[in-house]
Design a protein around this nucleic acid. Structure first.
Lengths: 151, 151
DNA sequence: GCGCTTCTGACCAAAGTGGTCAAGAAAGTC
DNA sequence: GACTTTCTTGACCACTTTGGTCAGAAGCGC
């Protein structure tokens, strides 16, 4: 249940792209802005390109830009592009798992987990992220002191 | 963002223990009931023992039982016992990460993700799980057809 | 002491993580 | 057309994690 470096980097790079208004941004500039190893980042950007989140052009004046408006791309889109499906259990989606005996209702629990994960990741867009104005339900979640407590 | 086989197995074994009313249950019986490789399961049970969730006795008439009442153990307890902290980003807790530039508000997003994960995992107990009567908020999450849709 | 069951550590193959390196292919500049 | 710039792709690499298995030690009940 952890967020990989790849996913974290991907979202940060995407945020930089969302904030840039003019033309293509070079990978190098993104890497510097977010302190990400350049070569690793280029692989990540390629994944995002294949997922249709980002577009790119080579050569002088080349670089990367978002394929869609920043308010049409959610964090879930970015995470899925580099990490694959968001809440798999034992590498299969929770709705396909069959539990036996006393664990029968575990499926509903994993479904609820995924639903709550989606409730955050699919509702924050890159535009929200760079503006700092998260949807109010998410802001409420993050506002609770309890949410900041380690455990 | 996936649930490992270990965590899944751990919760299922714990559910069996929660359902058993009498004496210690043998590892073998748990393994059969939930179709888990025995030797692997014993390692998992050991982890749970170290975490104080389970107790054990060796020898004939030995086996495992819950260290606390089933309604005092949450799924989060079990998952943490075998997987460690629940929503780390790049192996550190979200409240300690510092983001720069346009990714500054990403921290709040990860905090919200963790909060929503906790909202499920820390509120479903083993007793809820075996009885099938999940807390109403969680039941509502799992009831939405949307939550069952792949994506 | 004997049988049973947990406990523990060693080991293993395969996959994932977090990168680096080097060659290629397009795009722009002169 | 030559040259530079920048993305594209695949190979490689060290290390850790995952999902196990094996074998032996140690405790418990009789």
């Amino acid at each position: 249940m952890r967020v990989s470096a790849k996913a974290d980097y991907a979202v940060r790079a995407a945020a930089e792209l969302a904030a840039a208004d003019e033309g293509p941004i070079k990978g190098e500039r993104l890497a510097e802005a977010q302190d990400i190893p350049l070569q690793f980042l280029e692989h990540i950007l390629l994944d995002m390109k294949h997922a249709g989140i980002v577009r790119a052009r080579r050569g002088a004046k080349g670089g990367y830009w978002l394929a869609k408006p920043a308010d049409a791309i959610t964090i879930a889109d970015v995470v899925r592009a580099v990490e694959g499906p968001i809440a798999h259990v034992q590498s299969s989606p929770p709705e396909l798992i069959e539990y036996r005996g006393n664990a029968e209702h575990l499926q509903e629990v994993w479904i609820a987990v995924r639903a709550n994960l989606r409730a955050v990741l699919e509702h924050v867009t890159l535009a929200d992220l760079v503006s700092g104005e998260l949807p109010s339900e998410i802001e409420q979640l993050a506002a609770s002191p309890d949410a900041w407590a380690p455990r």
